[in-house]
């Protein structure tokens, strides 16, 4: 029974963090921009969200304000990269480091803040569930799951609509082929900045939600969040088909995040490892998932060498440049 309750809690947490996974998906997969700002942005979302709540602002508004301020983190990274031509990874790292100091300022010099659990966005739901006769822990987990699911559904619906618009299509195209975009009159710099803003807005929102769930948040919450987001994406992609519609892809990222949290919850529940070992496990999961196709390819090549399997399509393609070179000689003759 205990394990089921723990897993149920893990599902709720996974849904809250799914918003981060979706944000990371926008940059890493759609824009093809490895944005490391996220680590700082999660903590920014925590700090801003909780501080506003401590100022007696409604938790819903505080969460939205956190998202709004997260947008500026993305803007900063975007400007560093497009206007000052700083490489993508470094731009993200610079903003992330700068955010560390800014976050501490926001938290009045401390590295963390906390709220009463009664102040969180989850509290009214939890109370309602308890009034309906649910046990305290179950009510907490249910309210987490409901809020997480609602947030994911709203975010997915919004993104699905947005990426179907003219601007959204231009953003997707920028991630696919920049040169073509400029030839078609798309300002690729603006599109990159916009995607980074959107992504970091979502990531800050995830930070604010998670912080309310824990009634606590600070500079350490963001640590490792990128790798966690990537783990969610990779787990989700295991279920993606080539033709999956966009909203299905986003939903699968959310599912990936849930699966990730179930795995982590189980590992901790059975005391297999210390809670602090989870980062190591996460990193190992990502490494494994990324390198799997490589191992598969190596295996296939080995099979080909031994005379099994068909010749690779790629080989045909590789011959093309030679063909091209021959055509050039025609002129030089």
């Amino acid at each position: 029974m205990g394990v089921i309750i723990s897993v149920y809690g893990g599902i709720g947490q996974g849904l809250l963090w799914a918003v981060l996974g979706i944000g990371v998906y926008l940059t890493f997969r759609i824009l093809d921009f490895p944005d490391l700002t996220a680590e700082g942005t999660v903590s920014l979302g925590c700090a801003v969200g909780l501080q506003f709540i401590n100022e007696d602002i409604s938790p819903l508004i505080a969460t939205l304000l956190a998202a709004l301020i997260g947008i500026f983190a993305g803007l900063c990274t975007g400007l560093l990269h497009t206007k000052l031509k700083i490489p993508a990874v470094l731009s993200g790292i610079l903003t992330m480091i700068a955010l560390y100091s800014i976050n501490i300022r926001i938290m009045n010099g401390g590295t963390s803040v906390s709220i009463q659990s009664s102040q969180s966005i989850l509290a009214p739901l939890k109370n309602a569930f308890m009034d309906m006769g649910m046990e305290r822990q179950i009510a907490t987990h249910t309210s987490t799951a409901v809020v997480g699911l609602t947030a994911c559904a709203l975010v997915i619906a919004l993104l699905y609509w947005f990426f179907g618009t003219q601007v959204g299509a231009a953003m997707r195209a920028t991630g696919s082929n920049e040169r073509m975009c400029r030839a078609q009159g798309i300002d690729t710099d603006s599109m990159k900045i916009l995607t980074l803003c959107l992504s970091n807005g979502l990531i800050a929102m995830a930070g604010a939600l998670v912080a309310q769930h824990m009634s606590y948040g600070g500079t350490n919450v963001g640590t490792g969040s990128i790798v966690m987001g990537l783990a969610a994406i990779i787990l989700g992609e295991a279920f993606m088909g080539k033709r999956s519609p966009f909203y299905v892809k986003l939903a699968l990222v959310a599912l990936g995040s849930v699966l990730y949290y179930i795995i982590i919850t189980l590992i901790i529940f059975y005391g297999l490892l210390l809670p602090t070992d989870t980062k190591l496990i996460t990193a190992a999961m990502v490494v494994l998932a990324i390198s799997l196709p490589r191992f598969r390819r190596l295996a296939r090549i080995a099979l080909d060498r031994l005379g099994f399997g068909k010749a690779d399509k790629k080989e045909k393609f590789m011959m093309e440049p030679q063909l091209r070179a021959n055509q050039k000689i025609e002129f030089k003759r």
Binding site: F162, T165, Q166, V167, A169, A170, R172, A173, G175, S176, N177, M180, C181, Q184, G185, I186
Partner: peptide, 23 residues
């Protein structure tokens, strides 16, 4: 062309060449 996008999506992008893209 944008390889990860559909044929019609690519054409829709080109249809807006020179226009301001909106929502």
């Amino acid at each position: 062309t944008a390889a990860t996008m559909e044929i019609q999506e690519n054409l829709a992008l080109a249809m807006l060449r020179g226009d301001r893209r909106n929502l």
